[in-house]
Amino acid sequence: MKSTLKLLPSLLVTIVMSSLAPVMICGLVLAVCSLLLLCPGVTASILRDGLKEFLQVFGNGNAVEGILTIAITCGFVGGIFETFNFYYYQNNS
């Protein structure tokens, strides 16, 4: 039971960081595209529209739901990897 309590803080941090990473990456790409649109002669709208369409696929037509779906999935996978890593190195030490 003590070893399981050692896992919880690390697991929570891993899940939060794994969930925030895709949100931050998509937000950064959209922000850069929006800034590039202010420059004359630059066409970043293709990238922005492509990213929105990609997110809409995962969100049933809604880009916000798409990024939330991807974030939840990445957090879940990050938690699984952290749990595997914890128990693997606990049993091999």
Rank of each mutant, 00 (worst) to 15 (best):
K2F: 06
K2P: 03
K2E: 08
T4N: 09
L5W: 00
L7C: 04
L7K: 00
L8C: 05
L8Y: 01
S10P: 05
S10G: 15
L11E: 03
L11A: 01
L12A: 14
V13T: 14
T14S: 13
T14G: 11
I15Y: 05
I15W: 00
I15M: 10
V16M: 10
V16Y: 08
M17C: 11
M17Y: 08
S18E: 07
S19L: 09
S19G: 15
L20V: 09
A21E: 02
A21N: 08
P22L: 01
M24D: 03
I25H: 01
C26E: 01
C26F: 01
G27T: 03
G27S: 01
L28N: 03
V29F: 06
V29T: 03
V29K: 03
V29A: 05
L30N: 04
A31H: 02
V32C: 07
S34L: 07
L35D: 06
L36C: 07
L36K: 02
L36W: 02
L37Q: 15
L38M: 11
C39P: 07
C39W: 13
P40T: 12
P40W: 11
G41V: 08
T43R: 15
T43D: 15
I46P: 04
I46W: 14
L47I: 14
R48H: 09
R48V: 02
D49P: 02
G50Y: 00
K52T: 13
K52A: 10
K52S: 10
E53N: 13
E53M: 12
E53P: 05
E53G: 10
E53R: 12
F54M: 04
L55Y: 00
Q56L: 07
Q56V: 00
Q56F: 03
V57R: 09
F58G: 04
G59D: 03
G59H: 07
N60K: 14
N60S: 14
N60H: 14
N60T: 12
G61C: 08
G61W: 07
G61F: 07
N62A: 05
A63P: 11
V64S: 08
E65P: 05
I67W: 07
I67R: 00
I67K: 01
I67Y: 04
T69K: 08
T69M: 12
I70V: 09
I70A: 03
A71N: 00
A71W: 03
A71S: 12
I72K: 12
T73C: 12
T73Y: 10
C74K: 06
G75D: 00
G75K: 04
G75Y: 02
F76M: 14
F76L: 15
F76Y: 12
V77G: 06
G79L: 04
G79S: 02
G79P: 05
I80W: 04
I80E: 05
F81R: 11
T83D: 06
N85E: 10
F86K: 01
Y88I: 14
Y88F: 14
Y89F: 12
Y89D: 11
Q90G: 04
N91S: 15
N92F: 14
